[in-house]
Amino acid sequence: MLAISEFSVGYGRKLVIPPFALAPLPRGSVTALVGPNGAGKSTLLRGLAGLLKARGSARLDGVELVGLPLEFRAHHIAYMPQSLPHGVALTVIETLVGALRASPTDQPVPDAAAQGLQLLQRIGIADLALRRLDQLSGGQKQMVGLAQALVRRPRVLLLDEPTSALDLRFQLAVMELVRELTTECGLITVVVLHDLAQAARHADRLVVLAGGLLQADGTPEEVLTPDLLARVYGLSARVERCSRGQIQVLPDAALS
């Protein structure tokens, strides 16, 4: 369980996310961070990952993460940025072996390649193992990025817009995989998403931010209301359910 209280994040002395608290995030849950551009979603995620200076408390199963040096935090948390860099002459399996060998671990990793390959097989991309990163499509790269984050068997998975550059098929594939692995491995997953329907479909819980402030926190049904969309996004929108019961957000007009 991840308990966040009085948690704030900033760049240097500039506070971007003022202190706030969340109800505990249980294992096996997916929480989507949503909100308009510049809301502070990625900043919050990077604060949790330890890449930005954070204050307050974020306790993972009783272990305080705030102030924990990176090498110890890396035992618990995996962070996946939006994209992989270009022009990298490494094969997929080499990136996984590199992630395992470069990370400080309590125990030695006897066969990092085997561990990496098993994960690739679980994700369904074992056939990409010997392909170079540069030869992969955007969707394949996101899958590989996910594998890099998961190979160290973290307890918390932080994903920054993992579907932003993907077509519909890969958006679905990546998020379904995230959902499955979260349940299967008992992860606490926090994912930044822009697409509210996607967030409602794949997340157990939505946390809405705007201007660095917490606007709402709850299940998709509780959070996604026309009132909230008007207040946070400045949109006149309807929230309806499709024939299969999934929540759809239908924007009508921008409010002046």
């Binding site: 090498e71 990298v88 590199g98 060998r101 470069a102």
Partner: peptide, 18 residues
């Protein structure tokens, strides 16, 4: 190994604990 991991980007390397 750390230099290899750094090729995946600074933020990713930091999240690996480097």
């Amino acid at each position: 190994w750390k230099l290899t991991a750094l090729r995946l980007g600074e933020e990713r390397a930091l999240s690996f604990g480097i």
